[in-house]
């Protein structure tokens, strides 16, 4: 089974690596990081923080765009073009196929984030931004966050159209970042129904704000080992749950 996941993942990586959309998004990401070096002199005394904040945000934002543009249509494209039939007519389980697609996209993300991180480090050398180990952690957290969002995109792509998948993935990213606030708002509101609704939203959606350590890193605040461990386990649990659901749904799908 792992061999099949590996094969599908490598092929997916090759597909995205040869996709123009991927290069376009990557180019914009690199441009944004580079432009932060140009714009930073405008913020006198805080140039380093500007470069770091813009750079780390660009990592997440453009990673998200790759997930939305490439990930949302990935499975659909194979079904529409019927390339999937010759794959699944082989001794490949549908769960392996979904897992392979996911791993391939995550591998693409990892490569893209790594390139952007390298550029970010290079930009830091020519600006007052102060490099420290926290930036590597921020990179890791951004990767975890996008890996969870990718798993959600894969699940949605087994259920709805590519356009709806893209819209819902973006919505999930947005709501995922405010779900903690929504829960707090529900508790403050005093209305039982609203409180229950906010509690449900908080429970059924991943709390993506948990992966946001950009502010702490930019301001040089420490990130505890417990937070790193917990975030890793939290991401792994969500990814496993979302992929299990995707596999179960895709296993029942008709490939007419």
């Amino acid at each position: 089974m792992m061999g099949h996941v590996h094969a599908v993942a490598l092929n997916t990586f090759r597909e995205t690596a040869r996709d123009r959309v991927f290069y376009l998004v990557a180019a914009f990401g690199l441009l944004l990081i580079a432009s932060s070096a140009v714009l930073s002199p405008l913020a006198i005394g805080a140039q380093g923080k500007i470069v770091a904040d813009v750079g780390l945000s660009a990592l997440t934002l453009f990673g998200l765009l790759v997930v939305v543009f490439v990930g949302s249509g990935m499975v659909h494209k194979e079904i529409d073009k019927r390339t999937i039939t010759t794959v699944l007519a082989r001794p490949v389980s549908r769960r392996s196929y979904v897992a392979g697609k996911y791993c391939g996209l995550v591998l693409t993300l990892l490569c893209m984030l790594a390139v952007m991180e390298v550029l970010f480090v290079l930009v830091s050398f020519v600006t007052p931004a102060e490099l420290h180990a926290g930036y590597a952690l921020a990179f890791y957290f951004a990767f975890l966050e996008l890996a969870v969002v990718t798993a959600a995109a894969v699940l949605l792509s087994t259920l709805v159209s590519p356009l709806l998948t893209a819209v819902l993935t973006l919505a999930l990213f947005g709501v995922g970042h405010v779900s903690g606030d929504l829960k707090a708002f529900g508790e403050l509101a005093g209305n039982q129904t609203l409180r229950a609704a906010m509690q449900v939203v908080y429970c059924v959606l991943p709390n993506l704000e948990f992966f946001n350590i950009r502010g702490a890193v930019v301001h040089g605040e420490p990130v505890s080992g417990a937070h790193v461990g917990l975030a890793s386990v939290y991401a792994a649990a969500w990814i496993a749950l979302l992929l299990l659901l995707s596999g179960a749904i895709f296993a029942r799908k008709e490939l007419k």
């Binding site: 099949h4 390339t83 794959v87």
Partner: peptide, 21 residues
Amino acid sequence: PYFHDYLSAAELLDYYGRLCD
């Protein structure tokens, strides 16, 4: 039939060969 058009014929067969173990 329609195949992954970003692959060459040899790459496609290599991919399918992997899937056939």
